[in-house]
Design a protein around this nucleic acid. Structure first.
Lengths: 247, 247
DNA sequence: ATAAAACAGATTGTCAGACAACTGTTTTAT
DNA sequence: ATAAAACAGTTGTCTGACAATCTGTTTTAT
């Protein structure tokens, strides 16, 4: 990947159903449609939006999938209580405002720290070795200097992914993986830029090493704390640099 | 709600698209379709499943929504890398095997504990009062004895929801709310049965009080620890009693 | 001969209309 | 008056067609 920051993601020609779904969804968030309310009929919606009913149906099926609305054949589609959503997703909008980004990174920090804590007792020797290898990778990448920044960032991701897997809890793997992917997708270039700018090396590396030591020692609380320390600092660095609205 | 445990949830007549989506999804999980593979054409799928193409399209649109597959007009639909899923969901299958349930509750425990930790410093006095009111509600329900078990369980949920909201992090609210709803949906009757059987009262209530004290005192670490303690014990009680396969 | 342009085929995206299945209401039969 | 039957409205499914896009091939221009 070369110069990823030069060609930022473009808005692909959006699919109609996604567009419709977003429209309805934001109408619900805005309170124009409250829980319990009935949606207009599919026919009416397809008229209003000027699209075929199949498109409206796909849109609605997405919202049903997330538990935002519920449809009863012969009756209609209704907005469900806000409580019973059945999926957790991170929209691109989360990366637009600093406050949201900070909150997201806060959640990630906490979960990741827990994963480390679990890994401290659950990890096998094989997994420990795998984790250590990524630490070595980071050391070597740092020694190589600026040319290997990408490699270093990748190793960092891999390091914590290996730790997460060592927690032997599939939900942690899945959840962190999802958040990770979204952060990667939206902030990777920032992370790399950041890594280049930071007096890379000793300071940050020491944070990782502390995490590793805690996991090797099987010290649950230390693993949690060291991981939390690192990610809080990383979040700080990221949020400071990410060029987003300060709201 | 009367005797909810007497009429357990029935299998609603499933919609075709959901069924198809599940089929394809499990084919991917089973490894029959690997990342990068191309799905059969919509025409072919509709032939194989014996349904209309619109149904197949709705199914595929769900999988696209979760980032499991990606479609390119004129080319086909492809299975994406496992990394870049864009939603975290809890399927009913999670409650079928004890191991999975334990892992899920473990995740919940960790996140909830973090939320408490945040609430310890972020809560306003108003929020603190709200939290305390639910504690009072529990006390009064316990005093009332077995008749008020439902009320007590509800208050318990509300207590921790209030704490989560006091974390002033929307993602915690959303995420925990989602997990909560799923647990409620699948294990509420067990939780109630459990509450009835437990020597309700002093022991469990003391756990909640410890959490509240920590939050009142603004002690981050104590809030995390006490919350973790309670939920670990609760998970223990729940998993012991939940009548599910021991795998 | 080589490169550009046009073409053909396949596949997803959208459209239009019809009927089936279900629900709540109204009308009818007893 | 009560129960059964007809009715109208809505979601669920089916069918067939066309539009938009991509890939690979063939034709054409130079």
């Amino acid at each position: 990947m070369q110069h990823p920051e030069l060609f930022p993601k473009i808005d692909r020609p959006r699919r109609l159903p996604d567009e419709i779904a977003k429209n309805i969804s934001s109408a619900i968030e805005a309170g124009q449609l409250k829980p319990g309310d009935r949606l207009p009929t599919e026919q009416s919606l397809s008229d209003q939006f000027g699209v075929a009913r199949t498109v409206v149906r796909e849109a609605i099926s997405l919202l049903k999938y997330d538990g935002v609305i519920q449809a009863r054949q012969g009756v209609g589609a209704f907005v469900t209580e806000a409580r019973q959503r059945s999926a957790f997703r991170i929209s691109p909008a989360c990366f637009e405002k600093r406050k949201q980004l900070v909150q997201l990174l806060q959640l990630r920090t906490g979960v990741q720290a827990d994963a480390s804590a679990l890994a401290a007792t659950a990890r096998t020797v094989g997994q420990l070795a795998g984790i250590e290898s990524f630490l070595q990778e980071m050391v070597s990448a740092i020694a190589q200097g600026d040319d290997a920044v990408e490699r270093r960032v990748d190793a960092e991701f891999a390091f914590y992914r290996a730790i997460t897997e060592a927690s032997s809890n599939d939900y942690y793997v899945e959840f962190i993986g999802m958040i990770e992917a979204k952060i990667f997708e939206n902030l990777h270039s920032v992370a790399v830029k950041n890594a280049k700018a930071t007096e890379w090396g000793t300071a940050v590396l020491a944070e990782h090493q502390a995490v590793f030591e805690a996991i090797r020692a099987g010290d649950t609380e230390a693993a949690r704390k060291t991981t939390r320390d690192h990610f809080e600092r990383a979040a700080q660095r990221l949020a400071d640099r990410a060029d987003i609205a300060d709201v």
